[in-house]
Amino acid sequence: MPGGEVPLHLDLSGSAVGLEGVEGRSPWYLAYLRLRRNKVALAFGGLFIAIVLFCLAGPLWATHVAGTDPNTNHITDTIEIGGEETDVVAPNGTPLGPGLHAKYLLGADQNGRDVMVRLMYGGRTSIYIGVVAALVTTFFAVLVALLAGFYRGWTDSALSRFMDVIWAFPVLLLGIALGTALAVGGLKLGPIVIAGDSLWIPILIIGFVYVPYMARPLRGEILALREKEFIEAATAQGKGSWRIMFTELMPNITSTIIVFFTLNIANNMLLESALSFLGAGVQPPNASWGTMIADGYQTIYTAPHLTIVPGLMIVLTVLSLNVFGDGLRDALDPRAKIRLES
């Protein structure tokens, strides 16, 4: 059939097919129903939660199973595998690989540290940075979008030009440069003092560089909403600018913000791993999946598990967020209303 493969999308926003008789259900409830039907998205959302729980369980695993913390070296230790004494790190420097043993379940690294324990602790750092940086990005992006979209004119021009400049920065280059420079001596700006090894350095860098990517589309939505009658009505009622921004405009972009926020965490985790890989992200003694890869990559030919394992964790986490975010967008997007039934 012509177009037979593709479900026909009808515009149900107006009265074209007479949906106004359907009893009113809140758009959030409808989105919830749609999301509940999207089993794949739910499964990946569940996977993300499982990964978070896995990482949170790090201390438990460390004390009760592995019997070591993530940063203690065991270069000269041995463990018993199948009744045999085995070096954690062989004399030629090759560390123990993954195997079915409670200690060193995922093997050891060059310093004899337990990879499983480090993986759990590293994940806490990676996810923490991803989420907090996403909060930073969202906060500034929403603020910029609200101000630019509400006041328009001069404010909009200034903010938009500023966003253009950040947008035109070679993001990765800037991130790396800042990360390296700040890692040496930290940041001292008046009353703000951040130590060089603080997680706040990568968080702020990552949070900052993605602001324009989120602010631009949000600004577009605000500009469109600004033209709607309900804003005029609110103005006519004498509501103040800030009240209109936060009680009238904000709720209307919430669904977009939620989707962006979810996908932003995924992007942040990727950027964090890249910065850490190049030594410009998380600094010792903190470890993240990115720094684990950076360490492991030195010996990829003799101990590939040190590169593969943390990388797979990044892929799984980022993928779970991407799939879930995608499902969220479908659920919240009213255009997805008519969908294939079978």
Partner: peptide
């Protein structure tokens, strides 16, 4: 008829323009 009464869908179906997997 008023919008939504099916007159357009009728016309488009004559031309086969409503053919789709959910029709």
């Amino acid at each position: 008829g008023e919008s939504g009464c099916g007159k357009s869908v009728t016309a488009q179906t004559v031309m086969g323009l409503t053919r789709s997997s959910n029709a």
